[in-house]
């Protein structure tokens, strides 16, 4: 255990100890934080300013995954094998966190995985409840994540697909020929994150005006706002205020 890991809360320590098996993707390190109080360059002599914390998302989970998760992974492995794709080639890692199953899918195999999950009678994930983008600027080479929550009405089960693409080449195949409901959701994620869903028939902005520059939900896009003066003191705009993160 390195000194930086000692500062992690207990839960994150376990997550980092479960080092990804050989051949699987390493941990999603999303940030390295310094100091304790969100203040930099203040001449802090307490020593806390030198602390360094690595923040990573929960890593790959070992078998058994528990609940119905093993069955989903097993059946999906079979269905993918029938289509001539090795499970490990299509799915980077399997994460179980807070009793929820996430499959990290390689972008080019997303349509196949989604179609398999929808059509196989033991999987039957009929509903895709949209796609939510997340921007991790420090997850180098995998900055933009798209998260697809799937739900099976037949079996009353949930699974989540996550696809990570680099900011420099943000292309993910569209799934709207499999889940037509994702039409507006993909437009929204394009609008807010700039992820390009290849194969979408009209990937236009949906919430922002058509001529809007930039993608507002990305972390490098400023929140905006103005400082507010109150009784002689000035309260800075929300994104300028001190963050204790």
């Amino acid at each position: 255990m390195t000194s930086s890991e000692e500062n992690l809360p207990a839960e994150q320590q376990t997550a980092s100890q479960e080092v990804a098996p050989a051949g699987r993707a390493p941990l999603d390190v999303i940030s390295v934080r310094e100091g304790m109080f969100g203040v930099h360059g203040s001449g802090d002599t307490s020593g806390y300013g030198g602390l360094e914390r690595v923040v990573s998302m929960p890593g790959a989970s070992p078998r058994p995954y528990g609940s119905y998760f093993d069955e989903i992974v097993d059946v999906l492995t079979e269905v993918l094998a029938e289509a001539g794709v090795d499970f490990d080639d299509a799915v980077e890692k399997v994460v179980v966190y807070r009793d929820e199953l996430s499959l990290y899918v390689v972008p080019e195999h997303l349509p196949l995985v989604a179609r398999s999950l929808r059509d196989d009678q033991d999987l039957r994930f009929e509903l895709c409840l949209g796609v939510s983008g997340v921007h991790y600027p420090e997850d180098t080479g995998r900055e933009l994540h798209a998260v697809y929550p799937l739900y099976s009405v037949t079996h009353n089960r949930n699974v989540r697909l996550e696809v990570a693409v680099p900011d420099a080449d943000p292309h993910i195949p569209s799934v709207i020929d499999i889940y037509p409901a994702n039409d507006w959701h993909e437009r929204e994620t394009w609008d807010f994150f700039g992820i390009i869903f290849d194969g979408h028939p009209s990937l236009a902005r949906i919430q922002m005006p058509d001529d809007w520059p930039g993608h507002p939900q990305r972390k490098d896009y400023p929140l905006g706002g103005v400082p507010v003066e109150y009784k002689g003191a000035t309260v800075p705009a929300p994104d300028e205020r001190r963050a204790y993160n």
Partner: peptide
Amino acid sequence: AGGTRPYRAHFRDPSFNNLQ
């Protein structure tokens, strides 16, 4: 992301989806 603020909050609003 382990902090005091949500790193990302997304609401899948039923009206948004159903309006399609």
